[in-house]
Simulated assay, not measured.
Amino acid sequence: MPFDEHGQRRGRRPSRNVLGGPIAVCSSEPMTGFFRNGCCETSPEDLGSHTVCAAVTAAFLAFSKARGNDLSMPRPEFGFAGLKPGDHWCLCAPRWQEALEAGAAPQVVLRATEEGALRHCKLEDLTRFAIDLT
Rank of each mutant, 00 (worst) to 15 (best):
R9V: 14
G20P: 10
P85N: 13
G82I: 10
R36C: 11
A112L: 05
F3M: 10
E124W: 08
P2G: 04
P94Y: 08
Q8M: 05
R75Q: 15
A81D: 11
D4S: 10
C90H: 09
C90W: 04
L126W: 00
Q8L: 08
M1A: 14
C39M: 14
P94M: 01
Q107E: 14
F34K: 03
V108Q: 10
N17R: 09
H120D: 10
L126Q: 01
L118A: 09
V52P: 03
D132C: 07
A59T: 13
H88R: 15
E115W: 06
K84M: 08
P94E: 01
G79R: 13
L47G: 11
K122P: 00
S15G: 12
V18F: 07
K84I: 09
G48K: 14
H120T: 00
C121V: 09
S27W: 07
C90P: 06
R128T: 11
M1F: 03
G38N: 06
A54I: 15
F129Q: 15
L47H: 12
V18E: 02
A59H: 11
D70C: 05
S27L: 02
R16G: 00
P14F: 04
S27D: 02
V108I: 13
T57L: 08
A62N: 15
C90V: 02
F80R: 11
D46L: 01
C121S: 04
G86M: 06
P22I: 01
R12I: 05
L91G: 01
R95V: 05
F60E: 01
W96G: 07
E29I: 06
R36G: 02
V18H: 07
G103N: 09
A130P: 04
R128V: 02
R75P: 00
L19G: 04
L133N: 03
P76D: 08
L19Q: 12
D125M: 01
